[in-house]
Every structure is written in C-alpha cells, then in structure tokens.
Amino acid sequence: MTELMIEADRLTRVFGDVTALDTVTLTAPRGAVLGLLGHNGAGKTTLVNVLTTQVPPSSGTARVAGLDVRQGDQIRALIGLAGQFAAVDGQLSGLDNLITVARLLGAGRRAAYARAAELLDLFGLAGAARRPARTYSGGMRRRLDLAMSLVGHPEVIFLDEPTAGLDPESRLVLWRIVGRLARDGITVLLTTQYIEEADRLADAIVVLSGGRVVASGTPAELKAQVGTSSVRVTPVWPHGPARVLDCLSEAGFRAFAGPGARSVSTPVAEPGLVASVVRALDAAGIGVSELNVTEPTLNDVYLNLIKPEPVR
C-alpha cells in the first residue's frame, strides 16, 4: 500500500454558526496531486489552514505525512504553503525574501544564497532578483511566494488558488512547475476554481460545496458520473438559457447553465439521446443557433453537482 501523505477523516471546522468544513474525508498518496475544487466559501482555504496546522479542527482528525495536525512544529518542518494571498515581504528583494526563509529554516549564509539563486532561476525571477518585491507584478509575486514555500524541500506542498488572477501564460508556467514537483515525488494539494486546471494537474479531485465533499475521484471518474456525452445548446435570441432549462427539464433531462452563460449543457447517458434533446427544443419552438456534442467536461461535473442558479 502506498504511503498516505494527506489524510482527513470526518474533519469538521465550525466558525460561530458557519460550518466551514463538514465531515470532510479525503486522502492523497505520496507524489499525488490532489485538486480541491469549489466555489467561493466552499471551505478550500479552511481545509488548507487546518492541514497546515494554522487552524485546529473542531472535530475529526487530519494527518499530514503521518503526523496529526495538532503536532504543529513537526508538520511545519515537512510542508510548504503558498497561501491564497502571497506572503512575501514587499520591502525586501526577491532574493532577500528567499534568503530570509532559508536562514530561518537554519541554512548557513552560503547555502541560503545558493538555494535562493536556484529557485529564482527555476521560477524565472533571476532578472528581478534584486528588486523590492513590492515592484513585482501579481504573477511574479505568486511565483516568488511559491518559490519561498519550496525553500525547505518540503514533502507536501499546499497551493491555495495558485493561479488566481494570473494571465494564461503565467498560468502555464505555474502548471509546469506543479507538474515538475509531482514528478519529483512531492505531494501537492492544490485548490482552484478553474475546472480546467484541476483536470490538467490533478490525479484526484475532490469537489467541495458548503464545506462538504460532494464528489471525488479521478477526473475521468468524475466525468463518467455525468454520462457519455454532453450536449451544449445555445438558443436563438431572444430565448435565454432559462427557457431552454425549463424545456429540457420537462423533457426529463438534467440541464444546467453556467453562471452568466448564454448556453445550456445537458449530459446524456447515450449518444442516441442527442436527437431527443433537439426534438424537445423543436417542440417548444426554441430556435437553436449552436449545438455541440462533446465529451463531458469537468465543467459539466461541477455544474451538475453544485447546481448554481442560472443567471436569467
């Protein structure tokens, strides 16, 4: 059996009358990338805070690298955290930020400098190494923050929405880095709101909603839960997604629209049912401007599970 680096068992955290985490159970073996997907307030950051020993659980247990999260210091020596908001010192240069962390972890002056230089290279920050971090762009700050969390060669690393607010190019850079970490045998827990990101990076995905795990499995398993294919319908103006939703629901399909989307998606159990979708729309007099049949995406999974109110 592979060694479990992250384990949560019926983990619960309550803040006043908000249950931020509700009996969350999940595991990640060594070297895995676990993607944590959830909308705002789903409990992602709270879970990261509990696993990084910053917030004690209200009930249930959590272990990181085999150690109970209540054993703070021992765990902190094994983990790295890049939180939702970059924790860098704006007054210090990127180089000094990294050196400070290395020195705090007990490295000698020379070793600290060497490690800092290595990470600056790895993260493409060598050119800005001596500038104060407050002059960095958002993407550079994020990269520096991630670099700082890697200084101590952690075995488990927690990334809380590492690509929020990044442009597609910086996002790709970060994805490549995460891929490399996983290849090096580092266990990664990554929270995100981007389905594509979880799909690309994660070996296993846990979907949180309202503090509960509403789905978990490999990306492929989650997609399989939805059906064999997914039909996306964009109605002809002036019909909106609401009309399409009503019509398809009446016809017995599970349909949903993404927030703000003009189109409606419906997963179908077998390809033959695509025709039924079209017939139902036709019968209701809804013109279709665009119709795609795709493999189910994680978007379908996500929207299906979380059922957001369509924007009308």
Binding site: R76, V88, D89, S149
Partner: peptide, 13 residues
C-alpha cells in the same frame, strides 16, 4: 498579510 503569515506555516518558534 505579509511575511508573518508565511512564518506561521514554518517550523519557526
């Protein structure tokens, strides 16, 4: 916000 939030996740007394 700053650096201290990082220190909290590090093995520093």
């Amino acid at each position: 916000g700053g650096f201290l939030t990082r220190l909290r996740s590090m093995p520093v007394d």
